[in-house]
Amino acid sequence: MLIRTADDQDWPRIHPFFSAIVAAGETYAYPEGLSLEAARPWWMEPPPGQTVVAVEGDTLLGSAKMGPNRPGRGSHVATGSFMVDPAYQGRGVGRKLGEYVITWAREAGYHGIQFNAVVETNTAAVRLWQSLGFRIIGTVPGAFNHPRHGLVGMHVMFHRL
Rank of each mutant, 00 (worst) to 15 (best):
M1D: 13
M1T: 13
L2N: 14
I3L: 12
R4W: 03
D7Q: 04
Q9R: 11
W11H: 04
W11L: 02
P12C: 06
P12H: 06
R13E: 15
I14W: 03
I14D: 03
F18A: 13
F18W: 13
F18N: 10
S19Y: 05
A23S: 04
A23R: 05
G25S: 06
E26H: 12
T27D: 13
Y28N: 12
A29G: 15
A29P: 11
P31I: 04
E32R: 02
E32W: 01
G33L: 00
S35E: 04
L36I: 00
E37A: 12
E37G: 13
W43H: 08
P46T: 03
G49M: 00
T51G: 01
T51V: 04
V52E: 02
V53Q: 02
G57S: 10
G57Y: 04
G57I: 09
T59Q: 12
L61N: 09
S63K: 11
S63G: 10
S63Q: 11
M66A: 14
M66F: 15
M66D: 10
P68V: 01
G72P: 03
R73W: 04
G74A: 04
G74T: 10
S75Q: 00
S75W: 01
S75C: 00
D85A: 12
D85T: 09
D85I: 12
A87W: 14
Q89I: 12
G92N: 05
V93D: 01
G94V: 06
L97P: 04
Y100K: 08
Y100E: 12
V101Q: 14
V101Y: 02
W104I: 06
W104R: 01
G112A: 15
I113C: 11
I113H: 06
Q114I: 15
A117W: 11
V118K: 02
N122V: 07
A124T: 07
A124M: 07
A124W: 07
R127P: 06
R127M: 08
Q130E: 13
Q130R: 04
Q130T: 08
L132H: 05
F134I: 01
I136A: 05
I137V: 06
G138E: 01
G138H: 09
T139G: 09
T139R: 14
P141R: 15
P141I: 10
G142Q: 09
G142K: 14
A143R: 14
F144T: 04
N145I: 14
P147Q: 01
R148V: 11
R148N: 13
R148E: 08
G150N: 12
V152T: 09
G153V: 11
V156K: 14
M157D: 08
M157L: 08
